[in-house]
């Protein structure tokens, strides 16, 4: 029974930790499927988290905070679009620039506005997205196996976690069952064909970048107002890059993206839990190794030792309309 509870708690924190990864990963999916590489997921998430933290502090409303996060993140996404779609700049360079701008601006503005070393003040529960107890969770708690499973694992997350996981089938539906999705995929594979069909390539790609911004904003708001209570300097800590890795690992497909994010979230959860606990046979694993594990795993996965990931064909290439 004890190991059952431990396992449940492990999976529970897996879900919490993978939610922001999943949101960022799906964000990247919209953008990259349309042929716009996005290294800037990290920066957009960070800027979104800061906007959420600041607005929640001023107005005390989690939903306003979410809105602010989305707006800021979309604005940065539009900068990325302006550079890489309108001016056909290098998409990777532009993404890197956005990461630095976000990293610097959040700290400078945070320090100037709140004077707490770059963080925003701690948020009261009223200004956060709090865990929701699903109907019947308390009542079912006593039921063996299913009860704790429902109570611990499925119930008791913030609404953004449910949103993140609901976005998986939604994204699948958009991508594979709507006209917009078809065009989105087409513009990432063969923009000339889309152009020939009389559809504007830039406008389609801008919409993809906006979708990406919205989801990154939600991910940022989750970090600052659901998982944490306020913005902390550099709080994304590489999550944007891990999400990118998960996206490649999932070969740019939504359902697989969810499993990849759950895997990375699980590794994170195991790493946190294993700190100071020696393993049988191996002995105590250094914390640093567990922290590096997602990155090592990503490199191994990217190296194609487990299947080859083929990116959208027109990814990273600006479209030049023939004259």
């Amino acid at each position: 029974m004890d190991s059952f509870t431990t396992g449940l708690q492990l999976f529970d924190s897996t879900i919490r930790l993978s939610a922001p990864l999943l949101l960022a990963c799906l964000a990247g999916l919209y953008s990259e499927r349309a042929g716009i590489f996005d290294i800037g997921l990290e920066g957009k998430m960070l800027a979104g988290a800061f906007a959420a933290g600041a607005v929640a502090t001023w107005f005390g409303s989690a939903y306003l905070a979410l809105l602010a996060a989305v707006l800021v993140s979309v604005a940065l996404g539009l900068v990325h679009g302006f550079a890489s779609i309108t001016h056909r700049g290098n998409q990777i360079v532009s993404g890197v620039a956005i990461n630095f701008i976000a990293a610097g601006t959040t700290v400078i503005l945070g320090q100037a506005w709140f004077s707490q070393g770059g963080r925003t003040p701690s948020l009261p529960n009223a200004a956060r997205f709090n865990p929701i107890n699903l109907p019947g969770a308390e009542a079912m708690r006593g039921v063996p196996v299913i009860g704790p499973l429902y109570y611990e694992l499925i119930s008791g997350h913030s609404i953004l976690v449910y949103l993140a996981f609901l976005l998986v089938p939604f994204t699948w539906w958009v991508l594979y069952r709507t006209r917009f999705g078809l065009r989105l995929r087409a513009v990432g594979e063969n923009p000339a064909a889309v152009d020939t069909a009389g559809i504007s390539v830039p406008w389609l790609r801008y919409r993809a970048v906006i979708c990406c911004g919205v989801l990154c904003g939600i991910a940022g708001a989750y970090l600052a107002t659901a998982q944490g209570a306020g913005f902390v300097k550099d709080m994304t800590a590489g999550k944007g890059y891990i999400a990118l890795a998960a996206l490649i690992f999932a070969k740019w497909r939504p359902v697989q993206a969810m499993f990849a994010c759950l895997l990375f979230g699980f590794l994170d959860a195991v790493g946190i839990r294993m700190q100071g606990h020696p393993l049988p046979l191996i002995g105590e694993v250094p914390v640093q190794f567990m922290q590096a594990l997602p990155y090592i795993l990503t490199v191994v996965l990217l190296a194609g030792f487990i299947g080859k990931a083929i990116p959208p064909k027109a990814g990273g290439v600006a479209y030049v309309k023939e004259r």
Binding site: G89, N90, S94, I98, F100, A103, G104, I108, Q111
Partner: peptide
């Protein structure tokens, strides 16, 4: 951290 912003802006304007 102001430098980080300038760095980002330089990468944006001189690069992308």
């Amino acid at each position: 951290d102001m430098i980080v912003i300038i760095q980002g802006l330089v990468i944006l304007f001189a690069g992308a």
